[in-house]
Design a protein around this nucleic acid. Structure first.
Lengths: 176, 176, 176, 176
DNA sequence: TCGTAACCGAGACGGTACGTCCCGTCTTGCG
DNA sequence: CGCAAGACGGGACGTACCGTCTCGGTTACGA
């Protein structure tokens, strides 16, 4: 026998509530109790399908935020402009919170790499393949470009904006 | 009346206990209750002198960990080797935890920049000044070098080790 | 149209499962969820035909336990021996649990009196009519005899056994 | 070292809140969560000193209700009048609830006998010693008198009032 | 004989109490 | 007056059961 099927409405409501609260209160101040309340759902419904706050927000990122990412444009400049634009909202806060949590949760770290970080790395790598003459330093370049982005996202000593995209594009053009 | 002076012994015990628990359990799993217990100190003693977990660990970083940092050597290669060596212990975990917490605590973010991140940026900048012919991209280069370090620290797709130091040194040498 | 008739098998299974769990876990620890599971039945089937745990167990008492009560013998001694023998099993636990629940459920209290307690009172009264010369204290005597039984059932300072039946019979014989 | 002493105010507040809720909602509908809320106390404070609802209410009975019981008068009639008067309030509801819970908690049953039921039995026994010529049936008589009381308390087919006290006194006088 | 209405199991739903943990504050006595 | 101890009010945790709701599948009557 089958039983009542899972409610897609509750699933969406929970994921969206989690993002909303993350935006309002910041990742570490989000509680699963508040997510359930905000989603108008029972607490058990949440725990039935996810184990932790990170689980919920990781799924929110992959099923709600990720589809909004535009398809990778072929040139580095556009790619960086698109990518950096994304960081300026919930997505940034969430992914930083997930990253922090992943530091003491190897399983989450693994999924984070596979589902979120890895694909973006691959996309940047592909774009760089067309831009760099030498392929020797491809991975290092990826690390340094996304590194600069992450570093600024976290430390906020400078914005992750169009200007950064232009500067990086210039630099890459010169050394290639 | 002046009363009894603050116990330096308790202060050290608390800072060291905080680092020890951070190493053992990871930053987000450390509780101030556990720190007090580990330090053999009362809870109120802790709250009398610090407000939050981040406060304690920030002070632990500046007074226990920072003095262990060797004085900046003049060449980039040595600087990076020294710096990357530091990340491979509690220091890395703590600073990542602080950074994550700073995302929703502007005051902590400010102190983090002033006390920990800023000085290292300044040191790298100084070293780079001797290495780069053009000074145009100095800040961007700092961002990309430390960015790569942070990015790997967080995402763990590759180690922050001597090899990375060498690769970065090479790259900088070529473009300068 | 009439539709599928109620499953007598499920009904029996539920009533018997309820008694079984009452015996094993005690009335207050029985949950309707566990009853349904034990009976191998759906939860809705249970709620379709009964409203509460008390409903189920009251029906279990009247349709499964009550029929096992032997027909009232004419003499007090035999009546008490039969009655007291019944208390030494699930029946005692269930009826005490129902009684406790009835304290805050007037409707259940009413049904309990009508279906379980009243008939036994009437039976004892009838037996006593033959034994007591004066009818003045008939109701009081019923209260005191069944009272002693209940009191011991609940407080367990002494057993409800054949010895009690003999003592009561003696006492009644003397005062009649 | 000593630590902060237990708050007598919280203790009283909890015991009184428990009785108040018992009166308002009935023993089985009282939750420890609601007791803490009603008492204006933290939930942990409650669990620190008591394990279960029954623990709380047993202490409430012994420290708040029991002291109100007048000292045992020498004659049976007065004793029963006093005793029956007590049953007509929270005390009755609570003690019935405790008794029901004790059916599946042997430890509670033991404490209930020792702290509440036993002393009342002893008191009635003492009063009866002066009233009954034969001591043979002393315990049985205690069982039947308190039994009648309990039976009516639970089943509510007749009140536990002055009339009952008079009837029982009469009956005892006649058979003694 | 076959449609259909009410049954059945399974199990997810929103809700709420459970007992535990930690928070940051407070109240003791000792040094 | 700092300190350790530890109780305080508060609130989130993850679990269990509540009573309700949907599913797909199963009878057994009556058209």
């Amino acid at each position: 026998m089958v039983g009542r099927p899972r409610s897609e409405a509750s699933r969406r409501a929970i994921l969206e509530a989690a993002l909303r609260l993350c935006e309002r209160d910041g990742y570490p101040n989000v509680t699963l109790k508040a997510v359930a309340a905000e989603a108008g759902t029972g607490r058990q419904t949440l725990y039935r399908w996810w184990n932790t706050k990170a689980d919920v927000l990781l799924e929110a990122m992959t099923t709600i935020v990720a589809p909004r990412i535009p398809p990778s444009p072929p040139d580095l400049r556009s790619f960086l402009l698109d990518t950096f634009a994304l960081t300026d909202g919930v997505a940034g806060r969430v992914v930083v919170g997930l990253m922090a949590e992943a530091q003491s949760d190897p399983d989450l770290a693994e999924r984070l790499r596979t589902l979120l970080i890895g694909p973006r790395r691959a996309a940047l790598r592909k774009v760089l393949e067309g831009a760099l003459s030498s392929h020797a330093d491809l991975d290092l370049t990826v690390d340094m470009i996304f590194g600069a982005m992450w570093y600024r996202l976290l430390n906020r000593h400078a914005p992750v904006d169009a200007a950064l995209a232009e500067e990086i594009t210039d630099l890459v053009r010169r050394i290639s």
